[in-house]
């Protein structure tokens, strides 16, 4: 995911047009946009509504129903901490507190340097090896507070090649 990419209405229109003919196209469209842009920009709503012959309110209603979709740009990485029972039993609550303190943010917030957005998640299917977290599309298991700190250091160190 490259969140720094600028979105343009034409790009949104193209994504919408590519998918609007599918039965039940709305979720596939929202996923495509979020995968590409990192979030669902406000400007996408009327374009989607038009294409699917729905009202803007309906489209808004769907976006807000699902925890996965966001309407503001995230940081360069999204870190999700599993809050569900199996991870709780091996220290997810402590990890959660540690992560918030280390990053200085709460859930749904982004660090001031815009590197990391912190989110909650309820189970990543890695329940025998918790506590589990997801960093963008990769899942990590048995995450101790120390492992979390090492990860944050790794994420906040930009590679030497200049990023876009």
């Amino acid at each position: 995911m490259n969140h720094s990419q600028k979105w343009a209405p034409q790009a949104i229109q193209a994504e919408v047009d590519a998918l609007k003919h599918k039965p039940g196209a709305l979720l596939p469209i929202l996923h495509a946009l979020q995968d590409r842009l990192g979030f669902i920009p406000e400007a996408a709503v009327p374009i989607i509504a038009d294409a699917l012959h729905q009202s803007r309110a309906e489209v808004h209603g769907v976006i807000s129903f699902y925890h996965h979709f966001r309407t503001t740009p995230p940081g360069r990485h999204v870190v999700q901490i599993c809050r569900a029972e199996a991870c709780q039993s091996v220290g997810a609550r402590q990890l959660e507190a540690h992560a918030k303190a280390r990053l200085g943010v709460d859930y749904h917030q982004t660090t001031p340097d815009r590197e990391i957005t912190l989110e909650a998640v309820y189970c990543l299917g890695n329940c025998a090896c918790g506590p589990s977290i997801r960093v963008d599309d990769s899942i990590r298991g048995r995450v101790t507070p120390e492992a979390f700190d090492a990860l944050v250091d790794e994420l906040q160190t930009r590679p030497l090649e200049v990023m876009g």
């Binding site: 029972e85 991870c87 189970c123 299917g125 890695n126 329940c127």
Partner: peptide
């Protein structure tokens, strides 16, 4: 949708 915590057999 395998949403239950503690399950991963579907996965």
């Amino acid at each position: 949708d395998e949403g239950d915590s503690g399950t991963f057999a579907d996965r």
